[in-house]
Design a protein around this nucleic acid. Structure first.
Length: 114
DNA sequence: GCCTTGACGTTAG
DNA sequence: ACTAACGCCAAGG
């Protein structure tokens, strides 16, 4: 059969990230797991890196994607503190300057299946 | 074609 | 509980 499995892993990442609701955040591991690649957390980040350089990044709330610790590891790829500011703007709770309350605002991509 | 780096995560000490 | 190392897959040099 057609191996759509290996088809544009990044595109799927973008789609999932684009589905993250307002005021919610997700993690790289959760997204990669949802895509079937549990150990592809780094790939997700890699995809986002490309997104920053792409025009699509404009339509992708990459600021809602953090690591499993809730740390804004990708803040360096944003302009200044735009990532933190946007999260604050959405009412995300911060436990540290660059660490959000992932436990409270975590959004699971598997919610899409429901 | 081999080696290094990377927006991560898990397991071991 | 904290720190260190390995694994993962892909892309750039």
């Amino acid at each position: 059969m057609t191996k759509k499995k290996n088809r544009d892993f990044y595109e799927r990442v973008y789609e999932v990230v684009a589905e993250i609701p307002f005021g919610k955040v997700s993690t790289y591991g959760a997204i990669s797991k949802y895509l079937g690649v549990e150990s592809g957390a780094r790939m997700v980040g890699y995809a986002m890196n490309n997104c920053s350089s792409s025009d699509l990044g404009h339509a992708i709330p990459a600021h809602r994607v953090v690591n499993r610790l809730g740390q804004l590891t990708g803040r360096a790829h944003f302009e200044g503190d735009s990532m933190r500011e946007r999260l604050e703007q959405e009412g995300i709770g911060f436990v540290e300057e660059y660490t959000i309350d992932i436990e409270t605002h975590f959004w699971n991509p598997f919610e899409l299946d429901k």
